[in-house]
């Protein structure tokens, strides 16, 4: 009878759902991919970077702090963010993930005078580093907005220049994507008349130029990613909802064409193009633990051209592409969804 009582107790416990259990992802290095991914992919999880090649994960933990948002360096190596409690800095890493140089120094002794640096991205020639940085507003100490900044990769942070002027008290301008023309695409946050926060993809033709919107505010698009040939822009749009769609639009260097929906109904985040431009990786919840995993989806070939009349990408009802089946790449990771995967061709290719 006593055993029966224990049986009832443990029987009830067996009805516990996974939702209420503390999630415990197994080490990334033990993980396996469900579908092969050619080339090399870097991603972030739990404060470390991971390199995925030939189905094997290896950890890169260059030093103290939480490492995230890796980006490639044309000359070889990576640039990544090291985030600590009150500040974050950008580091140049070698091909093995060892720190070569600290690119920014944002730590100070007073809490509120520290700075953030996020979303590093190099210009295609590898000479200029773009990133998001929070300049201080001495007249409004409560204001903290990120702006797009640039600095010479071989220079110092003192040579950094602000490229964009964020709308005040909105969160600012993030995710810079420099083009070979000297233009920069980025995500700009704003607040509409009804008090809703919205994000738009913007383009600034050159330093000092007034930016222009490439998407409508209500589309709530962010996370721009340009294909290697520069003709297609991937992005994530939410339309103010709590689900996102992964969309792709043709791009001619100045304007976007009609957007095409590749994936809908997920919390899709941070797309990254395959080196050959045939597919995209992104992160979204899934797998056995329901956490953010890598997903793979085939990319559309560029067919439509940007409209010469429209500065802003036609919005409203982007073409749905229900036939494109996204495939789960990893099953039991817990990826940092604010860090885009970095997808590179294999060495020597």
């Amino acid at each position: 009878m006593v055993a029966f009582g224990f049986g009832v107790y443990f029987g009830l416990a067996s009805f516990k759902s996974k939702a209420a259990q503390r999630a415990g992802s197994k080490p990334v290095t033990k993980a396996r991919t469900l579908v092969p991914v050619p080339g090399v992919v870097f991603m972030a999880q739990g404060g470390a970077l991971y390199r995925l090649e030939n189905g094997q994960f290896s950890e890169i933990k260059p030093g103290p702090g939480d490492w995230t948002q890796p980006t490639s360096v044309p000359q070889g190596g990576l640039i990544a963010v090291s985030r600590q409690l009150h500040f974050s800095d950008l580091y140049l890493l070698d091909g093995s993930g060892h720190p070569v140089r600290q690119l920014t120094k944002n730590q100070t002794n007073t809490v509120e005078t520290n700075h953030w640096a996020f979303y590093p991205n190099l210009s295609p020639d590898g000479k200029t580093l773009f990133y998001s940085y929070d300049p201080k507003d001495l007249s409004n100490t409560f204001r903290v907005d990120l702006a797009v900044w640039s600095m010479p990769l071989q220079g110092t942070q003192a040579q950094g220049r602000r490229r964009t002027t964020p709308s005040p008290y909105t969160g600012g301008d993030v995710q810079p994507l420099p083009l070979s023309s000297g233009a920069v695409i980025y995500t700009k946050y704003g607040i509409d008349d009804a008090g809703h926060s919205q994000s738009q993809i913007w383009l600034q033709a050159h330093a000092g130029a007034i930016g222009q919107a490439l998407t409508e505010p209500a589309d709530d698009c962010s996370a721009p990613a340009l294909s290697r040939d520069g003709t297609r822009l991937a992005m994530v749009c939410t339309n103010g909802r709590q689900t996102s769609s992964l969309q792709v639009a043709p791009f001619d260097g100045q304007r976007l064409g009609p957007r095409e929906v590749l994936v809908e109904g997920q919390l899709a985040a941070m797309p990254a193009w395959a080196p050959d431009g045939l597919s995209l990786l992104y992160t979204a919840p899934g797998g056995s633990n329901g956490r953010f995993q890598l997903w793979l989806v085939q990319a559309p070939r560029s067919t439509a051209s940007p409209s010469p009349q429209a500065a802003v990408s036609p919005s409203g009802n982007p073409t749905p592409m229900a036939a494109r089946q996204a495939r789960l790449v990893t099953n039991d990771l817990d990826l940092d969804a604010t860090s885009a995967p970095l997808w590179m061709a294999p060495a020597g290719s």
Partner: peptide, 9 residues
């Protein structure tokens, strides 16, 4: 200081 970045996460 806090910084909660934007987007799905």
């Amino acid at each position: 200081r806090i910084a909660v970045l934007a987007g799905p996460q």
